[in-house]
Amino acid sequence: MSLGIDIQGLTVRYPDVTAIDDLTLRLAGGKIYGLLGRNGSGKTTLLSLIAAYRRVREGRVIVDGQEPFENERLTQQICLIREAGDVVIDGDSVGNILRRARLLRPTWDDDAAERLLELFELPRRRGVSKLSRGQRSALGITVGLASRAPLTMFDESYLGMDAPSRYAFYDALLEDYMEHPRTIILSTHLIEEVARLFEEVVIIDRGRLVAHEDTDTLRMRGAAVVGPAVAVDDFTAGMTVLGEQRLGGTKSVTVYGDIGEDARRVATDWGLELSPVALQDLFVHLTKGDHA
């Protein structure tokens, strides 16, 4: 059981900024998606609209054929963890928060919750106000994973967690996903850490869709062309250039787009080196520019 998402012409205007700008995006169910974007790119707003945290005012958000806002059939199947705060009331205990989720999430798995509590060393009786930031994040992750919601979204849900805990989260996520396939969206800054978990990657910038690709395909789309400046300039003419660097007579240009076999042969003949670009770098190139 997993939910697909269909977004059309979605726009969200805040008084001072357009957070989502005519976004159209279709995500098939049952995959792990990486949602990448810089701070303020609209990731949280987008996820909040999908999860019915916010009302759609311009455009459409359709999940499994229906609009999620005030739709109980859907909201009980959609789980968004924005850090941990939303599922937490100060003064609640860890156990009480899990109890609430168990009662309200039809797909809740108690054993999974128990395992995750142990994994993250969260004491059931501890009050949430006494948890560290990382522990609160871990609690959010516990609720998010054990809810087994057919559409599960984590919005930077690892804040304050150290590297071992984050890797434990990724492992738990992957394992749980394989046992219970569902649609999962992870928004993150730490791209290199999790890129291999993503089947597809969605990059947004200033509320607009920049890329939506199969992860492998996206990675292969970027290339750094290195060689004598003149040859590099000739070779990359007409290509989408994301960035360039120069060191003496040698130039390195990062391009975005498919480079066919023929072009690769030409590059070799001209003495140019084509090297791939890490997803993180590609992301930086694709989303740089003025963020006033």
Binding site: K31, I32, Y170, D171, L174, E175, Y177, M178, R196, L197, F198, E199, T215, D216
Partner: peptide, 17 residues
């Protein structure tokens, strides 16, 4: 593919491919 994906921590669809 699932064992492979879990072991190498990659998306199972990638392994399956």
């Amino acid at each position: 593919t699932n064992q492979y994906a879990a072991y190498y921590r990659i998306n199972p669809a990638t392994a399956a491919k």
